[in-house]
Amino acid sequence: MNLKINSHHLEVTPAMRTHLEAGLAKVRKHFDHVLDASAFLIIDNTKEKDLRQTAEITIHLKGKEIFAQAHNADLYHAMDAVVDKLERQVVKHKEKIQDHHHDKHFE
């Protein structure tokens, strides 16, 4: 899986990249058909101090894109929160795909 990281008002460190890659590895455990992912890390000075760090991730799956965004005072917490949101969305998507053929009940 290719991971592309963009940033606004900050420099992406190798530790940030490693943290995101570890989080996305958790997502890949649930669903292996992830083609690529793009992350956008933002520090916005105009917002409230509590929510000025933003992490956005878009995952490209076969036939679908999944997007999540999280705000926090700490960028690492924002990255963890956005990965958790993506995990829930990917599990839901996987369940929809798997249950698609099993919705007919024979009596």
Rank of each mutant, 00 (worst) to 15 (best):
E48D: 11
R88K: 15
Q89F: 07
I97S: 04
H71V: 00
E11C: 00
A25N: 15
L10T: 02
K29L: 11
E107F: 09
M79C: 15
H8T: 08
Q53T: 08
V12K: 13
V27G: 03
L51D: 13
I97A: 05
E95D: 10
H102N: 03
L35H: 14
I66F: 10
K96A: 07
Q53F: 04
I59N: 02
E95T: 01
M79I: 11
I59C: 10
N45D: 11
H71I: 00
M79T: 06
K26F: 09
L3M: 10
D99W: 07
V12L: 05
I42M: 07
K49I: 06
V27Q: 02
K96H: 06
H60K: 14
D103K: 15
K62W: 03
E56D: 09
D50I: 03
T46D: 08
G23Y: 13
R28D: 10
L20K: 11
H102G: 04
H105Y: 13
H71N: 11
A25Q: 15
F106S: 04
D44N: 15
K64D: 02
H100C: 06
T46R: 12
K47P: 01
L3R: 06
A78Q: 07
A68V: 00
V83P: 02
Q53A: 12
A15N: 07
V90I: 15
H77N: 12
I59H: 14
H101G: 10
L35I: 13
K26E: 13
F31C: 01
H8W: 09
R17S: 05
V82Q: 01
R17V: 02
A68E: 04
H33A: 12
A39K: 11
E56H: 15
I59D: 06
K47S: 12
R88A: 09
I57D: 06
T18D: 14
A68P: 02
F106D: 08
A25C: 07
D74A: 12
R88Y: 05
V90K: 05
I66P: 05
L24S: 12
I57E: 05
V27P: 09
A37P: 09
D84S: 14
H8E: 13
F40M: 12
F40S: 09
A78N: 09
D44C: 02
K94T: 01
I97R: 14
V90P: 04
K4H: 12
E95C: 00
E107A: 11
M1H: 13
K49W: 03
A55D: 01
